[in-house]
Amino acid sequence: MNWASCLLSGFVATLALSTLLATSQGFGLTRMNLPYLIGTFITPQREKAKFYGFVLNLLIGWVFSILYVWIFEARHMANWWFGSLLGLAHALMVLTLGMSLMPGIHPRMASEEHGPNANRQLEPPGFMALNYGIRTPISVFLAHAVFGAILGSLYHFPGA
């Protein structure tokens, strides 16, 4: 594995993903603010949460970049369309499995079963994150496809 290329392309891809999701929010495609959602794992304070969430998202992006690159290496293939396919699969996993598990793993998220309490006051995303806007899945699929495409395009195999 070419670690330098993995980390650099992972950084660029994560920035692109964050930018696309923020743009989607700005244009009203989704209400989801990913840095805020992630940052509230650490603090309920809105502005701090967004900052922490942004940093955490970069770190998570790197972790996923390593996974993507590991698949590229295993398949001896790294290009934009293969990266996009991985991204779409990743998005599907996030939207179904990740979002449904969110109330269970997020320490500040309420659930439909229990409602909000003193510690858990955040709206859960619901199936496919539809609680955050009916077009949220589109944004998430698009952002992850671009994430994968950038990784697939920028990653260089060792010695290449």
């Binding site: 989704t30 209400r31 309490n117 859960p124 609680n131």
Partner: peptide, 15 residues
């Protein structure tokens, strides 16, 4: 009301 998700939902207890 919120334009940003996740919204904050307040408990209806003593708080």
């Amino acid at each position: 009301y919120s334009e940003e998700a996740p919204s904050v939902l307040r408990p209806l207890d003593q708080s």
